[in-house]
Simulated scan of single mutants.
Amino acid sequence: MPRKDSIQKLRDQLVRRREALQRAFDGDLSLLRELHQERTGDVLDAAANTVQDELNSQLIEAESRELSAINEAIARFDAGYYGNCDGCGKPIPLTRLRAIPYATECIDCKRRAEVRSARGGGVAWNRVFDNVEADPV
């Protein structure tokens, strides 16, 4: 199957996944609202409810991140550059896109980014002010 057809199938999968996530996301939010209205019970019930709320909140956050990544992937498709690596510009292998359809980098570029991140390639915020001399007042 040509790459173009495979990419189109991936877009269709992304759209279906987006719809499923949106339904789940909407259901999770309505469930949380219902649970907050039904609060009754003792201290143990309150503790269990708090733990469940935290788990639901984390699930909603994960679903929201995935939904955002899917929306960005669909926008990339519509703009004509879905499937190309943001790092090197080369086509991302179909096997990677099938595994992670919203991937924006090929494996090599993703690994390089992870190595940079692990080495502290980002800003070391705890040291930002170490080299700044105190302003004389």
Rank of each mutant, 00 (worst) to 15 (best):
G80E: 03
T95H: 11
G120Q: 13
E114I: 00
Q8G: 01
E63Q: 03
W125Y: 15
P101R: 10
A46V: 02
R33E: 14
R11L: 15
L29K: 12
V128G: 00
I74C: 03
F25E: 00
K90F: 05
R16Q: 15
V115C: 08
P91L: 11
A79Y: 01
D135W: 13
I107P: 03
R23Q: 15
F77H: 08
H36Q: 15
E114M: 00
L67H: 10
Y102R: 01
E105G: 03
L32P: 01
A69T: 03
P93M: 06
A79L: 06
A124H: 13
R96V: 09
L44R: 12
D28H: 11
R11C: 07
D45H: 07
C106H: 03
A103D: 08
R16F: 10
F25V: 00
P93H: 04
R119T: 06
N71C: 10
Q13F: 01
K9W: 06
L29S: 08
G41D: 10
Q37D: 14
R11Q: 15
K110W: 09
D26H: 06
E38T: 03
Q37R: 14
R33V: 09
V128M: 00
D130V: 04
S57G: 12
V51Q: 14
V137R: 12
Y102L: 04
L21D: 02
L10Q: 03
P91F: 07
G89S: 00
E19Y: 04
E61C: 04
K4S: 15
L10F: 03
R23T: 15
A24S: 13
R96L: 10
E54L: 13
I74T: 06
